[in-house]
Amino acid sequence: MRVVLAEDLFLLRDGLVRLLESYDFEVVAAVDNGPGLLQALLDHKPDVAVVDVRLPPTFTDEGLRAALEARRQVPGLPVLVLSQYVEQLYARELLADGSGGIGYLLKDRVFDPDGFVDAVRRVASGGTAMDPDVVAKLFAKELHRDGPLSRLTPREREVLGLMAEGRSNAAIAQELVITERAVIKHTSNIFTKLDLPPSDADNRRVLAVIAYLK
């Protein structure tokens, strides 16, 4: 799988290259600035891009903007955005075009290489990988409002959270140590209680859930 990587700190860039290569990814370009990233994305059209939000020259949200611009020119280009902090504002901008292949994770998630690589693969295959922090904040707000979310059982809420992160039924089953059949039952309950159109594709499911939560 071909990857374009953008990270300005040498140590992290080096570490990420080694991590990805050890999981049999091919890093076709590793850049350290925003304009270079946009060029590399358009030149290589990789299977997936792993992008740090903050990049030179402005050290603001250069990486995010380059990724959004690349997706505007190459619709559906899979991008996983990494950041030292996650903002709902940015999560929404990334999800706004409604097509999949989007990830937004805290840099800490790299500490769990298996989980991280799973997220990269998910994004590459057109799925979604939202950071649990983003999802938790969405939930907190909805629960505060005392909306329909409070009608869910704690288990259903857990399932909904993992769904919002972009996990597949199989992954949710593994995470919660339950059968896939049980997961399917929970999801159909959730969709009924929240009045959401049923959907099997993991990606469409994420969008439905996130749209519901905001």
Partner: peptide
């Protein structure tokens, strides 16, 4: 730092 006051306040509102 990234976007300035307006977006920062929007982010605050979302949180």
């Amino acid at each position: 730092a990234d976007r300035g006051l307006a977006d920062a306040v929007r982010a605050l509102a979302l949180d």
